[in-house]
Simulated scan of single mutants.
Amino acid sequence: MRVLVARCSVDYSGRLDAHLPAATRVLMVKADGSVLVHSDGGSYKPLNWMSPPCSLRVTEPTPEQAAEGAREVWTVSAAKSDDQLLVTLYDIAHDVSEELGIDPGLVKDGVEAHLQKLLAEQVSLLGEGHVLVRREFPTAIGPVDLMVKAPLVAVELADDGAAGSRAHRHVAVEIKRRATIDAVEQLTRYLELLNRDPLLAPVRGVLAAQSIAPQARTLATDRGIECLLLDYDAMRGLDDPDSRLF
């Protein structure tokens, strides 16, 4: 990764045009080719950026740009569109390059990991007769937190007219501390893949979280995904919901 602290101006052209006048900013060039422009504010979100695949070309400034103090010009071009990011660098305060190596990936924080473990042990919270298949059930785009079998009474009747034997169908459970629309989208992608497997289908989804954003609940309901609120303290045995006054 290369990180620069520099006075620069930025012009973006493509789906829309945007201009950032000259100011001191942080420029990041990552190993995947992405280029990000940050200010001293706005949390993690860059002011502007170009996502890979893209190419970076460094050129000398024009005489007019040089007269204004420009030292070099970056032209960052998207590979699959006409989008272009033009960065004109003036004063460079710091320029550091560091090989970060392969990132091991995100490790879930303690609470979320504990929620997964607790729900796996208390799978009956999903409903009577539910049985855990496994935690971290693999898919082509990453593991879904829990795969569970839920009891389902068969529609067909036995020869003597009695109710048919009980069958099971699979349930994919995604667990979050706070579930947002992104969590619904993530679970939707898992379900699309899992339902392609005839040995698993039909697979329904459950979004389990300590809190669920209203927009996420609305989207989940629209997609046939059930929502389950988890009480972390009760699951740990630190609270008895039945003894509460309110």
Rank of each mutant, 00 (worst) to 15 (best):
residue 1 M to T: 08
residue 3 V to Q: 12
residue 6 A to F: 06
residue 9 S to F: 06
residue 14 G to K: 04
residue 16 L to K: 02
residue 17 D to K: 09
residue 18 A to N: 01
residue 20 L to D: 03
residue 21 P to E: 15
residue 21 P to Y: 11
residue 23 A to S: 12
residue 25 R to E: 02
residue 25 R to Q: 07
residue 26 V to G: 02
residue 27 L to I: 11
residue 29 V to W: 15
residue 30 K to D: 15
residue 42 G to D: 15
residue 43 S to Q: 11
residue 45 K to D: 11
residue 46 P to C: 04
residue 46 P to R: 07
residue 55 S to R: 14
residue 55 S to E: 07
residue 56 L to E: 01
residue 57 R to T: 14
residue 60 E to R: 11
residue 60 E to C: 03
residue 63 P to E: 12
residue 64 E to T: 09
residue 65 Q to E: 15
residue 65 Q to A: 10
residue 66 A to W: 03
residue 67 A to W: 05
residue 73 V to R: 08
residue 76 V to E: 02
residue 77 S to M: 05
residue 77 S to I: 04
residue 77 S to A: 15
residue 78 A to I: 01
residue 79 A to V: 00
residue 81 S to W: 11
residue 83 D to Y: 12
residue 84 Q to W: 02
residue 84 Q to R: 13
residue 84 Q to Y: 01
residue 91 D to Y: 07
residue 92 I to W: 06
residue 92 I to T: 15
residue 92 I to E: 14
residue 94 H to F: 13
residue 101 G to Q: 06
residue 102 I to M: 06
residue 106 L to A: 12
residue 107 V to F: 06
residue 108 K to Q: 13
residue 109 D to V: 13
residue 113 A to C: 00
residue 114 H to L: 14
residue 118 L to K: 03
residue 119 L to Y: 02
residue 120 A to E: 05
residue 121 E to A: 15
residue 125 L to F: 10
residue 126 L to Y: 00
residue 132 L to F: 08
residue 133 V to W: 03
residue 134 R to W: 03
residue 145 D to F: 02
residue 145 D to A: 04
residue 145 D to Y: 03
residue 146 L to G: 07
residue 150 A to I: 02
residue 150 A to H: 13
residue 151 P to C: 08
residue 154 A to R: 14
residue 156 E to M: 06
residue 158 A to T: 13
residue 158 A to M: 14
residue 158 A to C: 12
residue 159 D to V: 12
residue 162 A to P: 02
residue 163 A to T: 12
residue 165 S to Q: 13
residue 172 A to C: 09
residue 172 A to Y: 01
residue 172 A to F: 00
residue 173 V to Y: 03
residue 173 V to S: 10
residue 174 E to Y: 02
residue 178 R to S: 13
residue 181 I to P: 00
residue 182 D to R: 08
residue 183 A to G: 14
residue 185 E to I: 01
residue 187 L to G: 09
residue 187 L to H: 10
residue 187 L to E: 10
residue 193 L to P: 01
residue 195 N to I: 10
residue 195 N to F: 10
residue 198 P to S: 06
residue 199 L to S: 13
residue 202 P to S: 06
residue 207 L to A: 04
residue 208 A to H: 00
residue 211 S to M: 05
residue 215 Q to S: 15
residue 216 A to L: 07
residue 218 T to C: 04
residue 218 T to V: 09
residue 219 L to W: 00
residue 219 L to G: 01
residue 221 T to F: 11
residue 222 D to R: 09
residue 226 E to K: 02
residue 228 L to Q: 02
residue 231 D to Y: 06
residue 231 D to R: 05
residue 232 Y to L: 11
residue 234 A to E: 14
residue 235 M to G: 00
residue 235 M to H: 02
residue 236 R to H: 09
